[in-house]
């Protein structure tokens, strides 16, 4: 189980962020009920947060020997870990989330599907529009009509 894979750009930073977050959660877990009793609601959260902290520390310790990334600069991070297509897709997902309730599901999801397909296949808007329309109709029929899931609908409709 010896790790020989070279570290990826940002790997150590990610572990450190997780570690900081775990420490924060450990404090929060302690605040639930402290060491009040062995059956208090805070016992398991504290154990879980402690395990998180310890295992991350162990991971950091093990990885210390792993070869560092060949190119550790921010440019490499953006190239290998968060390439532009990922960031753009994430931006579209965030837009979908934010427009879901104000614009209603059909518009938000339709817009997202169209834009995302357009982005990922680099052009061909007609095909993107057709695929988006067909998929949207199928999803709407299955969820809203057949299974009565109340999808977000704009109030102004």
């Amino acid at each position: 189980m010896n790790q020989t894979r070279p570290r990826l750009p940002g790997e150590r930073a990610f572990t450190l962020v997780l570690l900081a977050f775990s420490l924060f959660l450990l404090v929060q877990a302690f605040r639930i009920s402290g060491f009040e009793s062995v059956s208090s609601p805070g016992v398991f959260p504290m154990i879980a947060a402690l395990v998180m902290v310890v295992s991350l520390a162990a991971a950091l310790f093990r990885d210390r020997a792993a070869p560092p990334p060949s190119d550790g600069g921010p440019a490499a991070f953006f190239r290998e870990v968060t390439p532009p297509v990922l960031l753009l897709t994430l931006a579209l997902i965030v837009a979908l989330m934010l427009t879901l309730e104000p614009a209603g599901f059909p518009f938000a999801a339709g817009g997202f599907l169209f834009a995302a397909i357009l982005l990922l296949q680099r052009g061909r808007p007609v095909r993107a529009a057709i695929v988006a329309a067909v998929a949207l109709t199928a999803i709407y029929v299955v969820f809203r009509l057949v299974f009565q899931v109340v999808l977000p609908e704009a109030e102004w409709l």
Binding site: T89, L113, A116, I117, Q121, V131, I139, L151, P152
Partner: peptide, 16 residues
């Protein structure tokens, strides 16, 4: 290019 956006929309609807 088509499957990924579909998975995301399906995940959103499914979670909702």
């Amino acid at each position: 290019a088509i499957l990924i956006p579909l998975i995301i929309v399906l995940s959103v609807v499914g979670t909702y």
